[in-house]
Design a binder for these strands. Structure first.
Lengths: 223, 223
DNA sequence: CCATTATTAGAGTATATACTCTAGTGAGTC
DNA sequence: GACTCACTAGAGTATATACTCTAATAATGG
């Protein structure tokens, strides 16, 4: 594997683990047992590493959130979309932690992220449309649908912060993909009032799949 | 005004302006034209300043979110609660930006914030109950009501980050209290499906009050 | 007035951070 | 074997950060 890619990989791992703020370029170099000079041969600065990671994140989410076209969606599609989004969020979870500082440090990133959010919101909006076509949720007029999409986005992007701040018992809060996906429970809670009567039961069942266990959750973090 | 209080005041202002990460104790001392030694006479370290600001934040929100007791609520109460919460969020807006790092740096803060969130969620839950008693929203069974409260909390605490990251056009994104309060529009969107038919119109009217203007918004930040 | 205590200045420290510079090394090519 | 060129090491720099220490100055109470 090329050094450049190893830098990206290690950076992502360390950022996810401890946050971008706590990880210096020297840390990254040390982790890879390469010299700082070597790292700076491959990247002009730290912001460039972050930006490249953002591009990968963006590409992945864009791919999975690709417009559902105009065919109606079934319930399994909804579950699949939610899983995909939370997978992306998990893989690049350092990103939404102090995103503001990241954007302050790099105008390209600010512009790119603005567009990215816009696309995500349209995608969610489109998914709502096609879920309505599929008879799963009741159609809503436009200004409302966009506001709903935004709420979904807000819940999704804030769920991790909630888990790591309000919910955490351990000292440096750790997190597992399974816990993260309990965010799907919250999203489905959000959509519940808009589900058509005939789909209410199936959606409730799907939602139950992600219900946060009050029992002991022996979850451990992986990469 | 006592130096200690001036330190807190200036810290809050600078933190809100540029984020805790970007503001060093030297910056704070310089802003007040006092020596670093003087600052450290009044506070053992930076985390102590942050913690004290958290206590103030907590006290304010706790005060305004005090349990509505058992008397039913009217629509004006709902508006009042929302305004109060967003006011608190505004005054201590540095806090929810990289909260995770703040908690990592101070175990007291982590514990305190965990409790604080718990109380906020119960308060929102209680407000839902009393809104139901007041005939404004339809009563919901418990596990659902808590999940709804959590969604409200997620939307509220993430609204500012959304504005400053996705929505911002300016370089260091600035924000006004008025813009922030458009978050109320989102919260009311969230609650809309649970509003009783007879209150639907009044709630829609209230919500319209906070609708984000598509027109030019010449809002400028104040402290 | 004197003694004690609270407050302040200001120079200084140890450490970290992002990043640079120079001098290579090693694999391929002519 | 000389040349190139992508790649790497490692020491080094300027700056910042959180924080300390000493000594001086107010403020206060008896």
């Amino acid at each position: 594997m090329k050094t450049r890619d190893r830098i990206l990989q290690s950076s992502l791992q360390l950022f996810n683990q401890s946050g971008e703020r706590a990880i210096s370029t020297n840390h990254i170099a040390a982790e890879l047992a390469i010299s700082p000079g070597n790292l700076y041969y491959h990247f002009r600065n730290k912001a460039d590493i972050v930006y490249e990671l953002f591009l990968a994140y963006q590409q992945q989410v864009d791919y999975y959130l690709a417009a559902p076209g105009s065919q109606p969606l079934v319930l399994a599609d909804l579950a699949w979309y939610l899983e995909a989004v939370f997978d992306g969020l998990w893989q690049y979870r350092f990103f939404h932690r102090d995103l503001e500082s990241l954007l302050d440090a790099d105008p390209r990133l600010r512009a790119g992220y603005g567009d990215f959010t816009g696309r995500c919101l349209s995608a969610i909006n489109g998914i709502f449309s096609q879920l309505a076509s599929g008879g799963i949720i009741t159609p809503r007029p436009e200004p409302l649908r966009s506001a709903m999409a935004l709420n979904v986005w807000l819940v999704i992007t804030n769920w991790m912060a909630y888990l790591k701040t309000a919910h955490a018992t351990e000292e440096p809060a750790v997190l597992s993909l399974a816990e993260l996906k309990q965010g799907i429970y919250q999203v489905l809670t959000l959509e519940l009032p808009h589900v058509t009567p005939e789909y209410r039961e199936p959606v409730l069942a799907l939602r139950e799949t992600y219900r946060p266990g009050t029992f002991c959750q022996a979850a451990h973090p992986s990469t």
